[in-house]
């Protein structure tokens, strides 16, 4: 029965969706952890020197790419990779 389910993509498709969720979710946690330290430091610097806002923002947004990586993997899993087609 399990074999049958795999053949029609049922369970595997479910696992695929779980994997896609994990990819975005874990990447999001990673980006958040990265940004928390930078964010705190940037707020500190900007309080002293408001002119630093632009550069601070730049530093703060750097780890943001991480979540896009996760999302790219999710999108590929959900939309582009079609093992059961």
């Amino acid at each position: 029965m399990v074999v049958g389910a795999i053949n029609d993509g049922g369970i595997l498709y479910g696992l695929l969706a779980v994997g896609a969720g994990l990819a975005t979710g874990l990447a999001g946690i990673g980006a958040g952890v990265g940004e928390q330290g930078i964010g705190a430091a940037v707020v500190g610097v900007v309080a002293e020197e408001p002119g630093f806002l632009g550069k601070g923002l730049f530093l703060m947004l750097l780890p943001e790419t991480l979540i896009i990586f996760g999302l790219a993997v999710s999108l590929i899993l959900m939309f582009a990779w079609t093992p059961f087609a």
Binding site: T65, I68, L71, L75
Partner: peptide, 12 residues
């Protein structure tokens, strides 16, 4: 490489 992937956010 990550520069280019980063533009996926336009969609995401």
């Amino acid at each position: 490489v990550s520069n280019l992937i980063s533009y996926l956010r336009l969609l995401a």
